[in-house]
């Protein structure tokens, strides 16, 4: 009985191991996460933004979201309260007091920053998020299971969710107008901005332009390009004349958002070695303890 059990033990262990190895081989189907050299970016120059909210209108229209007439968007009453991107508006403009000139309030547009090393891509349980070659972070809504882990992971609190839909609730966020840019068009917000507070172009060029603006007008700008290094760099970068924290940007270091989490994951699952080793170790203990017990039982019988 014992011998038979032991033989079984090895046989079945081998079988299990093969299955595990097979699984590890297919585990390479990770989400697409490209960091291409000529990825695009947008420079948001907060000092130029006039708060006309045309970008909000353009975004709504480009994404087939409910939109009022563009004229209604010029209403500045909405600035009375701080707004965030929502599941029916992917970009919003907020207003802050200008400490230097109360007649020129500071308007700031918010949307997905399109991180170079996005937390959502790393976090998504089904790998629905993708960092594309052009720098955009987009997601495949057909894969989404609605777990909202991307919302937990996002360092900028950007993805939003249809809480009031019972069927097919979706994640929503700025998609960098992926469809439009693939057709050679500009992102809708960049195209409509009357003062070109948003400049679209290769990210390297964007950073160069931003640095030059700071150099040309050191009194006007803070010597800081928000997003150049934050969370490992973002596709959208910001220039401002006042501290970014007063504009309600989160204070981030240069560490990438998924950094530690991914290293832990990869450490625990490095080619499935640690789990298999644990399995083998426990199996060994089980085998030894079982034999000891059996011996004792035999001795007792004798």
């Amino acid at each position: 009985m014992i011998d038979k059990n032991r033989r079984n033990f090895f046989k079945t262990s081998a079988l299990f191991g093969t299955v595990a190895l097979g699984a590890s081989a297919t585990a390479k189907a990770a989400p697409e996460n490209i960091l291409s050299d000529d990825r695009k970016g947008v420079l948001v120059d907060v000092t130029h933004c006039i708060g006309c909210r045309s970008c909000e209108w353009a975004c709504q229209t480009a994404h087939d979201l409910p939109a009022d007439k563009i004229h209604d968007y010029h209403d500045r009453e909405v600035f009375k309260e701080f707004r965030r991107p929502n599941n029916d508006s992917y970009t919003v403009v907020n207003e802050f007091e200008n400490p230097n000139n109360e007649l020129l309030p500071i308007n700031v547009k918010y949307q997905c920053m399109h991180c170079d090393r996005p937390a959502c891509v790393s976090a998504c349980i089904v790998g629905a998020f993708t960092k594309k070659e052009d720098g955009s972070v987009v997601w495949n809504t057909d894969m989404c299971i609605g777990c909202r882990y991307c919302m937990v992971a996002c360092p900028f609190q950007i993805p939003t969710f249809d809480y009031h839909k019972a069927i097919q609730p979706d994640i929503h966020k700025c998609d960098f107008c992926y469809k439009r840019t693939q057709e050679g068009k500009l992102p809708a917000c960049v195209e409509i901005c009357p003062v070109e507070a948003l400049v679209y172009g290769p990210r390297t060029e964007i950073i160069r332009v931003a640095k030059h603006r700071i150099k040309r007008a050191p009194n006007k700008y803070l010597d800081h390009i928000y997003g150049e290094d934050e969370v490992g760099g973002t596709s959208w970068v910001y220039l401002s004349g006042v501290d970014f924290q007063t504009l309600k940007f989160p204070k981030h270091g240069t560490k990438t958002a998924p950094g530690v989490s991914e290293s832990i994951q990869h450490g625990l699952f490095a080619y499935f070695v640690p789990p298999i080793a644990l399995y083998a170790w426990l199996g060994g203990i089980m085998w030894v303890s079982k034999r000891k017990n059996a011996k004792q039982a035999n001795e007792e019988k004798i």
């Binding site: 891509v121 629905a128 299971i145 991914e262």
Partner: peptide
């Protein structure tokens, strides 16, 4: 979905 759509980077997965 997680059974067939894998993201080994994800702790949740």
């Amino acid at each position: 979905h997680p059974l067939v759509m894998w993201n080994p980077n994800s702790a949740l997965f």
